[in-house]
Design a protein around this nucleic acid. Structure first.
Length: 251
DNA sequence: CGGTTTTGACCGGCGC
DNA sequence: GCGCCGGTCAAAACCG
């Protein structure tokens, strides 16, 4: 994982912003600090991830914490007998839950939009919706429809500011986007170089098209060591790396 | 008719 | 041990 050194703004320079348009919808991207302050939120710049964030804006624990990987896997392997369910079905479920334990890169970002499910160039199938504690808005669970792709994403509205959508991605796409050429244009937007700011990388695919405002990637988790890194330099490749491995990309 | 969404149930982890 | 909670499953409904 070699990230090329780029002349990116230092952490303190968090006021830069970019604007571009796609399909007639204009999107402005700004740093977290810039926007949050601008929106009247007082998050501050995280020296560590999440510093100064109001509770209502805290990301789901599965984003802000290390994945409980092997724990779930180990637990599901033992007790299989349970009244009411078909053994085969249960075994199947167990197997699937084991898979879920594998660690995946994750990151979350926030978008100011009235639309919950932002178009990002990939096709998603909703597999669940859940009311979560401390939020009047349900959280939706999506999976990439590509057969061999196990990328998931969760979408929920901020309870503090209902106009803000928190989107969290997990995993990497093993395929290219399935969007029309016009959408391709939009989904390629993140290749515009963005300063790293307090984030280690930028969203692989920005929500696009819909009149919404990406107010900044909020948090990206890879590994504990990734969090410790102070000033990584995202590159054009890095921008897509999280979702589409470089080998999969055609250019 | 195939793909997607909805929704209640199930499951495991965690805190008390 | 129990209850709460988040995440997932899967059947049924829905839609193009």
């Amino acid at each position: 994982m070699e990230e090329q050194e780029e002349s990116l703004p230092p952490l303190s320079d968090a006021s830069s912003s970019w604007k571009f348009s796609a399909d007639g919808a204009s999107i402005s991207i700004a740093s977290l600090h810039d926007v949050c302050v601008g929106e009247g939120l007082d998050w501050g710049l995280p020296g560590g991830i999440g510093d100064g964030l109001p509770p209502a804006f805290d990301l789901p624990s599965w984003v802000t914490e290390e994945p409980r990987s092997s724990v779930a896997a180990a637990a599901s392997s033992s007790s299989d007998e349970r009244p009411g369910g078909k053994p085969a079905e249960k075994a199947n479920r167990s197997a699937k839950r084991v898979q879920k334990g594998t660690r995946q890169p994750r990151f979350a970002f926030m978008t100011k939009s009235e639309i919950d499910h932002l178009e990002d160039g990939y096709r998603w199938r909703k597999y669940g919706q859940k009311v979560v504690k401390n939020s009047p808005f349900p959280r939706s669970y999506y999976r990439c429809t590509h057969s061999k792709c196990n990328v998931k994403k969760r979408v929920e509205r901020s309870s503090l500011d209902p106009s803000i959508v928190i989107t969290t991605y997990e995993g990497q796409h093993c395929h290219h986007t399935t969007v029309s050429p016009s959408q391709q244009l939009a989904s390629s937007a993140p290749q515009i170089r963005l300063p790293a700011m307090q984030f280690h990388r930028n969203p692989p695919v920005l929500p696009v098209i819909h009149p919404g405002r990406v107010i900044g990637p909020r948090y990206e988790e890879r590994t504990a060591s990734a969090v410790e890194r102070t000033s990584p330099a995202p590159t054009d490749e890095g921008l897509l790396d999280d979702v589409v491995p470089s080998g999969m990309r055609r250019r």
